[in-house]
Amino acid sequence: MKKNITGILYFYIHFIVEIACFFYLSRVTNGSNVVWLIPFIYDGVAFVPQSIIGYISDKYPKINMAFIGTILMIISYLIFGLTKWSVFISLIIICLGNAFLHVAGAENTLKTSGGRLSPSAIFVAGGSFGVITGKVLAMSSINPLWLLIPIMTIIPFSILADMYIEKDSNTDKFNYVRECLNPYVVILIAFLVVIARGYVGYGIPTSWNKTVIQNIIFFCTMGLGKALGGILSDKIGIRKVAVGSTLLAIPFLCCGNNLMIVSIIGVMFFSMTMSITLGILTSILKENPGLAFGITTIGLFLGTAPIFFIKLTMNINIILIIIVSIICSILLGYVLKGDEKK
């Protein structure tokens, strides 16, 4: 059996997708009078339709979602770079391109993983590195059309990743959830955990984060945490990592407002559950990994949406981090099976 590198291939694809999206977002919002609306629409149109696209991908696996996504991103950049059309046209198209490519990554890494979490965790991690690279790149005077080159490199990488999908590739080996539980309850718990942690993620006190370098360190640590969550789950057990990382993050997040090193340790632990909730949902929706992934992205959208309307004080955020983390660790410990030695 050939070594599965789909996680690494989709790490690169996700990295490029987020560079393209955050370069675009940073450029269109710079000096715009609709600065609030554009990121809000981006979050919704890029995250929410992934459930529908994922469901279609589950039902019709022959549709090449990565190719559709890449074409949409290219069209969006051509409109953005060459025309004076309304920003909302290129915005909607780039969001949909992002959504198609995310679904392709989730389907591919979950189906070829043989029940392991690390490939999808490595795929998810690529996004954090891409977000900060796109933001930094947007500060330069580079013409947006140059980004078409990295976007086009997605095609050979996705073709290579597709070669790992075999006729019997599926997610049947995902069995992380206790069998006795009602599947609707499990889905609801995983969904609530994603929403809660999505919201709390924006409330992490990071007064230390002032320079570009510190921002790069912040996003890279987040990416590292996401990848480590999956890799450690495969090595030492998903339940230990889920409960342990959620609880360990609390003191570091709460005491790291002015101390970068303390804070980023907390951010790393905090990011580890990202792929774990996906593993929980895939364990229930074994025939629908695309739909399972889409549920997590809807949760992320609903979790982050309030930040566009409400701003809480740091003390309230710290209290929320403590309460939400404890509740999430209890719920994750309740839902997940005891770890077996691998």
Binding site: S51, Y55, N288, L291
Partner: peptide, 10 residues
């Protein structure tokens, strides 16, 4: 629509 799909599948 997502809720309907989940109910249908589960």
């Amino acid at each position: 629509a997502t809720v309907i799909f989940v109910i249908k599948e589960v």
